[in-house]
């Protein structure tokens, strides 16, 4: 068993947590006392944050709907598919026709990259789940 410092993925507060890792599997969490945001406290979601990691219901590869059915595809295929569609929509309808949803579950840096990408395409439509 070892404790691996991490950040809670569940909300924008970003509490520090220690993942309890046993035999290379995440089996629990422990609040991280040294983290300045939460100083050793977690909410119910944080205390349960390990549960989805190895959950059998978790998607482990991208899915594309083909002939009405979702099928597992490689990351390369999924990214190519998405990039083609995105380019197509922007070419046909303009950048205003696409929007990007950032997430409170990601880091500041990841969200920065997302909005940068959105503006690079020329779209003003960037939003995030914490406004719901």
């Amino acid at each position: 068993m070892k404790l691996v410092p991490s950040i809670c993925p569940y909300c924008g507060t970003g509490c520090g947590m220690l993942l309890i890792v046993k035999d290379e599997k995440v089996v629990g969490v422990e609040p991280w006392e040294r983290h300045p945001i939460n100083e050793g406290k977690l909410c119910l979601k944080g205390w349960s944050a390990h549960q989805f990691v190895h959950h059998p219901g978790r998607l482990t590869s991208p899915l594309i709907r083909k002939n009405g059915e979702l099928v597992e595809v490689s990351w390369d295929e999924a990214l190519d598919f998405t990039a083609d569609k995105l380019k197509g929509i922007v070419a046909e309808h303009g950048a205003d026709a696409v929007g990007f949803l950032a997430s409170a579950k990601c880091t500041n840096e990841e969200n920065y990259v997302l909005q940068k990408f959105c503006r690079y395409l020329g779209s003003p439509n960037v939003d995030h789940c914490a406004r719901l």
Partner: peptide
């Protein structure tokens, strides 16, 4: 010791 001198964690 964990990440720094004041980060004290249980360890096997």
């Amino acid at each position: 010791k964990g990440l720094d001198e004041e980060d004290l964690l249980p360890a096997f």
